[in-house]
Design a protein around this nucleic acid. Sequence first.
RNA 1: GGGCUUUUAGCUCAGUUGGCUAGAGCGCAGCAUUCACAUUGCUGAGGUCACAGGUUCAAGCCCUGUAAAGCCCACCA
Length: 944
Amino acid sequence: MKFASSYEPNQYESDIYAAWEAAGVFKPTIPTIPVDDNGDGVDDRFEAGAFETVLRRREQEERSAAHDDGPAQARRESTASNLCYSIVMPPPNANGNLHIGHGLTVALEDSLTRYYRLKGASTWYIPGADHAGFETWVVYEKNLEKSGHTRFEYSRDELYSRVWDFVQMQRGNMELQLRALGASCSWDDLTFTLDENVIDRVYTTFEKMWNDGMIYRGEKLVNYCPKHQTAFADIEVDHKDEKGTLWELAYDDIIVSTTRPETLFGDTAVAVNPEDERYKDMIGKTVHLPLTDREIPVIADEHADPEYGTGAVKITPAHDFDDFEVGNRHNLERIQVISEDGHMINVPEKYLGLTTEECRKQVLKDLKDQGILKGEKKIVHSVAHCYKCDTVLEPMLKEQWFVDVEKLAKMAIEHLENDEIKFYPDNKKRVVINYLKNLKDWNISRQIPWGIAIPMFKKVTEEATDEPDWIFDRRTNLTEIEKSGTRYVRDEDTFDTWFSSSHWPIVCTDWSEENPTPYYPLNVMETAGDILFAWVARMIMMGVYVTGEVPFKEVYLHGLVLDEHGQKMSKSKGNVINPMDLVEKYGSDAFRLGILRGRSAGMNQAFSENSVIAGRNLCNKLWNISRLVQSIVDEEFENSATRGLPEATAEDEGASPVTLAPWDANCRRQTGASDPSRESTISNSLYTTDNMGEDWICREINECTKQIEQDMKDYRFAEAVETLYQTIWDKYADWFLESQKIYRNAALLKATLEHLLIILHPFAPFVTETIWQNLSWTEGFIITQKWPSRLNYDPITAEQFESILTIVSEVRGTLQALPGTNNANKYALMYDNDSLVEDNLLLIKALTKVPDINALDGKPRGLRLALANHELYLDVPEQVVAEYKDALTEKILSVGRELDALNARMMNPNYVEKAPEHLVKETKDQIKEKEALIDRLKTQQELI
RNA sequence: GGGCUUUUAGCUCAGUUGGCUAGAGCGCAGCAUUCACAUUGCUGAGGUCACAGGUUCAAGCCCUGUAAAGCCCACCA
């Protein structure tokens, strides 16, 4: 016996993965770089006919799902991109560990990759690693502080190289974990977000934008974390509702409302609504700013809401986003009173150097003493927090680089409205368009060293020349450069990580204008729904801007993986599930099957260990199915000389160049091959279907395969897994294999098992490959097999088998319901004039476990089964039948209720008139059947 | 304020263009045991499909409204 009695994933998974990797099966089969082997000056990948066999298969598929073809579609027709399937991995943190979300991502992406690989595409699943700018920086800075140092002791370049070393030391776990999850990605093509080609591409884009006038330097308010001393993009800000106080302060005759009294030193106006009668007379006058000797003007601006607070608002353009806008409209001075490390500056001596919090207390005290504080109210308002350290963010006036997004957004919207990207779930497309329509200019400067340096240099001002103040230059390894005799120093800031990430599909596929690749646009972008704006929207803008084409044809967004009670996982709640623990405990396949179960696009959904256990059970079931099938096939083929099994012709074989030696009894790989004569017989056998169950299982497997094809097209992973689960377990094992214990059909067993293994492989790669190798019927890896074509069967016999299923189920149910236990082998079954039963005596006997099945001799006796079309009796003594009487009455009643409902439907003239004909006919048939059934049950009842 | 999503069995979810006598897994109850598999097999219980109206021969599905839960964007002096 080659197979152990249960499947132990840990014994096989890493070996299997290593074998795949060594054989190079993860690499795309169509080259990713241009080739011109025939020397005709044309990129061979784009020549039609180069991959005829694949193309033919593709065409068939395309034809069945033909849809309108835009110009881009037409251009790609008959080119290599038609045969390619590309997908990039959202890069996990290079020096981190994978969390449950990565587990889901890999399960989804790798299932797609493996499916399309089996379908014959040249698949390219491109792995990535993220330098995780801010995250990594925070961790590094914490370490630095622990060792008693601060970032200010080092230059930017020193810090960069220190973090680089730090990351290198920590690296590697993530890649190992991706392997453990079975990700069939092309490791040679792993892209790190700080790779040279990434930086290069980012600089090229930046230069293009600079030349196009889309980059500007501006002093604007940005959200600034005083602790981390860096600015954030709007999208990185965590808004939280908090309780606060609204204070009312008397600025002479006007009472203003504020939540931030300490910023009053930065006030340069008081605004009232132009329509507000209360303050009309004040407009244009000045008021005294408390605690200072300044006078500030009263201005009219729509921003002041007469309904809110006192209707008058102090304006601090340097420390509030709305006030900044008001300041711009009225040309107000911006006075910065809070420094970048959160202390008071440009304020009277008394307050100088206080933290904002200390200052607020002092200011309130002084205002109260002077009678200026007129009132306070508790309110709830939303406050911006640092998403990393939870510090309250300070709106800070800073010179930063901005991208004018108007053109970018407009182009992206055009392509989106042109339906060039299909979204799953589809409502997200509208959400993205809406976001892009309201997008504000994008602050791309970050004040952290760990990232891509902004390639801008500032003129050293002492030297007065006509040269521009800022110039673009790629030499960011230098802090200072000279150009046209003028000295320039490098801007110390780095790019917002999303600026470079937005190039991901371009850099991963190595697209360039000179060498467009058939792998761009990607077939699908699969990622988490919560980075729809930060990443997906930006990739679309950047893709269109750089390449003129959308970066991907479809977007699949997954939701959050919640805990088993639908709660968000968090360290503080202690409900975090580590995917690697589950892989360790139940195997990679079990994890993948478990996490895909019950999951649909865009939804935050619960996940529990139970679903992984269900997955593990399926793997074990499949393992044992294979064990049984192999034992039958082995036995049958040993006698095959006398049986004369037919042989397949050459074109039915799926030859593959890679071979693995089979495992021995201890599931370790042997060096030698197994008996070649036996192997060739098995691998060449063709099947015929000899009985109804065989036709039936072929039909069911075909249905299942078709279903999976549709599900994969629609990204319905959970449904695909569900279908497989039921086909393998309920149909193949519980019915077909049970019947094969009676009628053995080795060639069919082989064909069907291989078929099932292949269609399960995208979801459970390890167990299917392990079994494939153990069976060693067909050469090569399962991962590179062909997606199976339909099995041949006779539909009429397949349908007839359903009757057997009904009979067997009814016998089992009735036996259970009869008084007493263990009834199965007590009572014989009798049939009257029923050829279906007569022809399948052995099978029915085996499935029902009744001791005997006989033709009825003489008058009917015993218990008649509740079957409309079959005359079957259980040979039960009258006394037992009498005890069963209540159950029988209940059955008659329940069938009667069903019959009433059907009759009511037919009594409705509108139904008969308007419903489709086939439904009316169906109802009529059902009525006939129910009537017959009731009739039989009633005779039975009278017999008692 | 604007937008999105969800509500179906004890739990987690399916239910695709209306044809439903509403399904699955887990859980629960009963029965089985030298069988490929106890990570098993068989049988069963369990649902006014959130609520109220409407359209239709027919509504879990379509329309209108209500309620509850969750999310996103904007505002919040």
